[in-house]
Simulated assay, not measured.
Amino acid sequence: MLPKPAPRLLLLAAFAAVYLLWGSTYLAIKYAIATMPPFLMAGSRFVLAGGILALAGRASAEYETPTLAQWKTSFVVGALLLVGGNGLIVLAERTLPSSLAALLVASEPFWVVLLGWWWLGQARPSGRVVLGLLLGFGGVYLLVGEQLATGAAGRSQLLGVGLVLLGAFSWAAGSIYGLRAPRPQSPVLASGMQMLCGGALLLVLGTATGEWRGLEPSRFGTAAWLGWGYLVVFGSLVAFTAYSWLLQHAPPARVATYAYVNPVVAVLLGWAMLHEALTAQMLVGAAAIVGSVVLITTQQKKEG
C-alpha cells in the first residue's frame, strides 16, 4: 500500500519530532533509571501516555470501535516495540552509556532490510545493501571492541550490548509486522492501544522480577521524575505518535533515516550533560554505522 499524501509542513514536523526528540530520550532514560526500577519506569510511562492517546483517539471524528484483530495487532506490536525494543534498551542503559546505546540502536535498519526480504518477500538485498550491512556490523564490532575487557565491568557491558542489539531486532520486527496487520485508521488511537498493551506487559514484567519490593517513590529524586515526565510527554505522546503517523504517510526507508540522526543527538547530549567519553575507535565505529545506514536507506529509496 502506498503511503497517503500528507502536507509537507506536517511531514517536516513529524520528522523533526522523531529525529530530535527520540534522540534525546536516551539521556532521559539514563536520568530516570538512576533511581527508578527499569521495567516499572517504562511500563508506567507507556500506560499513562497510552491512556491519554486512547482517550484522544476515542474523541476524534475518525474513531471506530477497535476490533479484536486490531487489539491483537496492538498486543503483538506493543510487545515487540515497547517490551522487546524499548524495555531491553532501558535495561541495558543501567550498564551502558546512553550514547553507546543509541549508536547500537542504529543497527535497526539492518534488521529491517533482512526481515523485509525474508518476511515480506521484498527484493533480495543488492550488493550495495550487503556492503552496508557488512560495514554496519563492522562498526558495531568497533563500538563494542573496547568493552571486550576481562572482568565483571566488561562482561556486564557486553551483556548490555547484546540486549540493545536484541532490542533493535525486536523493534524492526514490530515495525515490519505492523505494516500489514489490521489497525485503527487513527494513528493516535493505534499508538494509544499499542502503548497500553506494551506498557501493561512491562508492568507485569516488572512485577515478575520483583521491582515492587522496597519501592519508595519519594527517594527517586527530581532528575529521575523530570526524565520520566520527558519520556511520557516528548518520547511517547509526541515522538511515538509521529513515528506511527509517518509509517502511514512516508516510505518506510525514509522513516528509517531517524536511525542515523538519533545517535548524533544522543552522543552530543551524553557528552555535554553526562560527560560520557568518546574515543577515536568509538567515533570510527559510529561513522561506519551511520555510513552503512545511509547506504541501505538510499538504496531502498531508489528501489521504491
Rank of each mutant, 00 (worst) to 15 (best):
L165N: 06
T73W: 01
F75S: 14
L40D: 08
I176D: 12
E64S: 13
L143M: 14
S156H: 01
A172V: 04
R128F: 00
G138M: 11
T67S: 15
P97E: 11
L80M: 14
G145H: 11
G167Q: 04
P109G: 08
V90T: 13
L96R: 11
L55Y: 00
L82Y: 01
W71L: 15
W119N: 12
G154P: 09
P125W: 00
W111N: 14
G154Y: 00
L163Q: 04
L131D: 06
R58D: 09
A61G: 10
S74K: 10
W171H: 12
R94V: 08
A59P: 11
G162N: 11
G84Q: 07
E108W: 02
F169A: 15
G116M: 03
S170P: 11
G145L: 07
G151H: 01
I176G: 12
V144H: 04
L40V: 05
F39S: 13
A172M: 08
T95K: 13
G85M: 07
W118Y: 06
L166S: 14
G139V: 04
G154Q: 09
L96G: 12
E93V: 08
L142N: 04
V113C: 06
Q157C: 03
Q157W: 00
G127R: 11
A59D: 10
S44I: 06
T67I: 07
L48G: 07
L82C: 12
S156Y: 00
G178M: 06
S74W: 01
V113H: 05
G87N: 05
L135T: 02
V77A: 14
V130C: 09
G132A: 06
L100S: 05
A59Q: 13
L115G: 08
G85K: 06
G87F: 02
V164M: 08
F169L: 15
V105D: 10
G50W: 00
A79N: 07
L40P: 04
S74I: 06
I176K: 14
W119Y: 03
A49D: 06
G132H: 01
I176R: 15
G151Y: 00
S156K: 07
G57P: 04
A69S: 13
S175D: 12
Y177G: 13
Y63S: 12
A79V: 06
V112I: 11
V112R: 15
P125G: 05
G84E: 07
A152G: 02
F137L: 13
E64Q: 15
F137G: 11
R94Q: 15
S170W: 02
I52K: 05
P97H: 08
F137H: 07
L131K: 05
S98R: 12
L120I: 08
V144T: 12
L115H: 01
L142I: 03
V130A: 11
F75H: 09
A123H: 04
L68D: 04
V130R: 10
V83P: 09
I89N: 13
L135M: 03
V90C: 10
G121S: 05
V90W: 02
L80N: 13
I52L: 14
E64K: 15
A172S: 09
L48Y: 00
S107G: 11
V105N: 12
L135Y: 00
S60V: 08
L163T: 03
T150F: 03
V77M: 12
